[in-house]
């Protein structure tokens, strides 16, 4: 077995670890376990029935579909933004770089009402789509817009440091050996960035699945059409259906844990390929 802790001359281990574990248990672990313990009131078939009604399944499909689409767009444009910020110079670059983190700092409710005003039929951006018969706000497309906004920094901030660390020797070698610039990108640069890109994609996707604040304003929230799963949990709570809300919460928690596992594996892969 060996010892739990290696010897150190520094004091305070017991106090620091004890406080950390106590705080984490009281604030995070015990409350989270409450959700799982409360669902044990259900039998397994009852639980399955509650979390697979047509309205709930429609909300999963929407939540996952819109989150996936937003994460794909963020992967493509996040890579582009990271590339432009690392490789090129242009006026206002420092401000643009700082503002990329805006979705981290701006409260989701503010993002929600701002995007709704912009992408509504009479909004600054929505008015250009209205004549084409495309409605963005109060439809699933609006949900996609909101999720793209909140996921925007993840890919940029995971790809950026890897791109900064790529050594120019590799690219020079590729050019010397006769590769075109495009070949160098697809065969040398992109494979190096790929683990970080996937990590950023997974982070944006995971964040989008649980998102609530920015979505509810722009979604329209029609059952079966534009109702996301977190909203369905709120709806059940408001109807005092605590058991149903908890069952859905457990489904969301399990999905969160799986995503966390995938993200940890991706980060491990990313670090390993950066070290190699």
């Amino acid at each position: 077995m060996g010892t739990f802790k290696q010897y150190s001359v520094l004091p305070g281990f017991n106090l620091a670890l004890g406080f950390t574990l106590l705080y984490l248990s009281l604030i995070v672990l015990i409350p989270l376990s409450a959700a799982f313990i409360r669902t044990s009131a259900f039998t397994w078939p009852e639980f399955l029935a509650v979390v697979t009604t047509p309205r709930v399944v429609a909300s999963y499909r929407l939540t996952f579909g819109a989150s996936f689409a937003a994460a794909v767009v963020n992967a493509i444009f996040g890579l582009l933004v990271a590339w432009v910020l690392v490789r090129y110079r242009f006026p206002g670059k420092k401000i643009v770089d700082a503002l990329v983190d805006l979705p981290f700092a701006l409260p989701t409710a503010v993002a929600g009402i701002a995007l709704t005003a912009l992408y509504a039929g009479n909004g600054w951006i929505g008015q250009f789509f209205e004549p084409l018969g495309i409605k963005i706000a109060f439809t699933p497309i609006g949900i996609f817009v909101a999720l793209t906004f909140i996921g925007l920094p993840f890919v940029v901030r995971t790809v950026q440091p890897v791109l900064e660390d790529i050594e120019s020797e590799l690219e020079e070698a590729a050019a010397t050996l006769g590769a075109t610039r495009l070949q160098t990108f697809t065969r040398v640069i992109f494979p190096t960035l790929f683990p970080a890109l996937m990590t950023g994609f997974a982070l944006a996707f995971a964040r989008a699945i649980g998102e609530y604040g920015s979505v509810i304003f722009i979604a329209g929230n029609m059952p079966m059409i534009s109702e996301i799963t977190p909203l369905l949990i709120i709806t059940k709570l408001e109807q005092y259906d605590y058991a149903g809300a908890t069952a859905l919460a457990v489904v969301m928690l399990v999905i969160s844990f799986v995503m966390l596992l995938i993200i940890n594996l991706l980060q491990w892969w990313s670090r390993r390929s950066m070290a190699a």
Binding site: L32, G210, Y212, P230, I233, S256, F257, L260
Partner: peptide, 8 residues
């Protein structure tokens, strides 16, 4: 807590 939905 980062990976848990705010609603949950």
């Amino acid at each position: 807590p980062f990976s848990v939905s705010p609603v949950v």
